[in-house]
């Protein structure tokens, strides 16, 4: 392949003059400036702050350079707990939402008539304000009058104090997490399913396969690239779980401060404790973790290229 690589490189026939250089540059400039101001500069600044000792926010002063912030963050049991919580949340939410989404997507893929309706419905959670969603979920989870407890009561299960009992709060967070992750996941999987030539299903049927055989032997393997992609994207987005936590537990990380996540830790260090150095250090740690997953994602995408 290497000998073709040179060909791929696009070379314009047009001669590069000041004019041909300036024109696209002007078009790109606003965007580039935006990136520079809102992404590049803040990123490097965050890196810098994470190495500043005793950083003071308002007066922008610090006592020297060092790894103190990282030492502090890694020796803080709350941060360790935040990483453990985040990992648990990701494992549970990403896997459960994937399984449910695959089943729903496969079912939806077979009913063509109502797809427009469903596709609108999936987007509802994505376009509704998270505050409103949080409110609704707090109603659903309510101990006294929540519908979840009503449903449980139909099966003679005692009411669960979803939001106030620390033993159940992680479950509640995960339920919410799975729910909020479904639409995006289903949409992507549905797109993946629609890319599968229906002839494979027909072929499998002729080969004697039943619905379950087809699901496990044809649908899932052919959907694997999409599943892999969605899983990684969901894992990355779950690392930043915060909204849900904030909404469900009224600004506290769980009823007994038991649900710190990395972002909540970061938020608290910054917003309520003004420890910008710690906040920056934890942000950089999170960045490195996410970077690793992004690299894995690229690998996976290359590996599953069947066609």
């Amino acid at each position: 392949m290497s000998k073709f690589k040179k060909v791929k490189k696009y070379k314009s026939d047009e001669k590069v003059t000041i004019k041909t250089f300036l024109k696209p540059t002007i078009y790109l400039l606003p965007f580039m400036l935006g990136i520079l101001v809102f992404t590049v500069y803040p990123f490097f600044n965050a890196v810098a702050i994470s190495f500043k000792e005793d950083y003071k926010v308002i007066s922008d002063t610090f006592s020297g350079w060092g790894l103190g912030n990282y030492q502090k963050v890694f020796s803080d049991p709350t941060f360790i707990k935040a990483i453990i919580n985040t990992t648990q949340y990701i494992l549970v939410v990403v896997s459960i939402s994937l399984v449910i989404s695959i089943l729903i997507a496969v079912m939806l893929n077979s009913v063509e008539k109502l797809q427009w309706l469903f596709q609108t419905a999936y987007f509802m959670p994505m376009v509704t304000s998270s505050a409103a969603i949080g409110l609704v979920w707090r109603w659903l989870f309510n101990y006294d009058y929540g519908i979840l407890n009503y449903l449980l009561s139909l099966f003679n299960v005692d009411a669960i104090n979803f939001l106030n009992n620390p033993q159940y709060s992680m479950i509640s967070l995960c339920i919410y997490g799975v729910w909020s992750m479904l639409p995006f996941t289903i949409i992507l999987l549905l797109a993946g399913l629609q890319n599968i030539d229906p002839q494979y299903y027909t072929a499998a049927k002729v080969d004697g396969a039943k619905t379950v055989d087809i699901f496990f032997n044809i649908t899932v393997p052919l959907l694997a690239p999409t599943i892999g992609l969605v899983a990684i994207v969901n894992i990355i987005s779950s690392f930043t779980v915060f909204d849900a936590l904030y909404m469900l537990f009224g600004g506290k990380p769980g009823p007994a401060y038991n649900l710190y996540t990395v972002i909540f830790y970061l938020y608290e260090q910054f917003y309520t404790k003004l420890k910008l150095g710690y906040a920056a250090a934890s942000a950089i740690v999170l960045f490195v973790i996410i970077l690793l997953f992004t690299m894995v994602q690229n690998r996976i995408q290359k590996k599953y290229d069947y066609y």
Binding site: Q199, Y200, T202, A203, K205, V206, G208, A209, P221
Partner: peptide, 16 residues
């Protein structure tokens, strides 16, 4: 199809 014991070769083969 699965009960008919037929083999089918598709126009574009439909190999998995």
């Amino acid at each position: 199809p699965d009960k008919r014991e037929v083999g089918l070769v598709f126009q574009n083969y439909a190999l998995y």
